[in-house]
Design a protein around this nucleic acid. Sequence first.
RNA 1: GGUGGGGUUCCCGAGCGGUCAAAGGGAACAGACUGUAAAUCUGUCGGCGAUGCCUUCGGAGGUUCAAAUCCUCCCCCCACCA
Length: 372
Amino acid sequence: MFSFQLTARSTDCLARTGRIKTRHGEIQTPIFMPVGTRASVKALAPEDLKACGAQIILGNTYHLYLRPGCEVIGPFGGLHRFMHWDRPILTDSGGFQVFSLAKLSKITEDGFAFQSHIDGSRHLLTPESSVAVQLCLDSDILMCLDECIPYPADQMRAERAMALTGRWAERCRSAWQEADRPQNALFGIVQGGMFEALRRRSAQALADLDLPGYAVGGLSVGEPKELMLQIAAATLPLLPEAKPRYVMGVGTPADLVEMTAMGADMFDCVMPTRNARNGQLFTRRGTLNIANARFRQDTAPIDEQCGCYTCRHYSRAYLRHLYMAKEILVYRLNTIHNLHYYLDLMEGMRTAIAEDRFQAFRRSFYAELKTG
RNA sequence: GGUGGGGUUCCCGAGCGGUCAAAGGGAACAGACUGUAAAUCUGUCGGCGAUGCCUUCGGAGGUUCAAAUCCUCCCCCCACCA
């Protein structure tokens, strides 16, 4: 029901292509997954996502548990029918909200005790309840509940969170196995802060659980970029070769290129969608802020070489006008462009890996950025 | 014609003798955003050869050590009454 197959490998780096099979179709890796936290990739309809080339999207357990809740989504048979998306869905466990909503939460051995950011009500998210909610959402890929720590964090703190994440992973796995739903794959998450030794131990312990896939968590939490890349480079090779490797919450286009070279298969990040709504657009020559006065009378599209719906039909001047006037259409048009850019970048990398010219692709990626 | 209320930095709008280049919005300009409490947030926003100087609060005079703030006249605007 769920499977992963490697289809090509670079000879000069660790980059690889693969194919994930799910009951909602196949995913070609490496892939970027647009974030749809509350059962919606903000500003887009599923048809827009497909036109951008989206193969799989994210949902979030914490947010969907609080609102609208399983009693609403359950009767639909899960998230797919609820939100009219028939391709694969990965749900985050709520672990990241332990981190980003830390002021409202408390971590115990049992789980994540928190107060709703919506109404202040008290809840407890445990490994078991997180899995239960994700099964109710019927996502194709479930994530283990983990503890993501901020940067900087000392080794003791990192070790404690890493160990807890490991124990929670075992409990998630038990809950998942008891449910007997192999079509809903469960992924483990490596933690360990910025300490390679801890990352190693975490990866080892999780590998022993023999889960369908593995993720690197706890990156891009405020650390310097070089450190992030260093830890990713040290961690990714520790993950089982034959399983999909997912780097959570990353990243910039350059991050995706670098980590693909390290053997990562899956990424997700709010950057293309959030920044689109904030006026920052990605192009192969760098980013541009559509609010800048220099685009006021610019009749050109965002990127002459881009084939997205937005670039085929609209000028920078028009997009700037919509943005300045806060017309809601701009959020859709900008998001379409940024996601198209991200997904097109991934497709370019897949092709390059398949043709074993990834390093050449990488060089031209940076060369083109410089011309911007 | 009468009575009352107003004219403030791009706009709206506080200020009502010194701590005022003048609150607060808006607009404008620039930046940030990495498993989304984000269609959000931050900074700049009279001019300079700038820990100081110059110009500015409808116009012109005046009072005072000191005026956007007080007085006189003038020019506009608004409301109500004739």
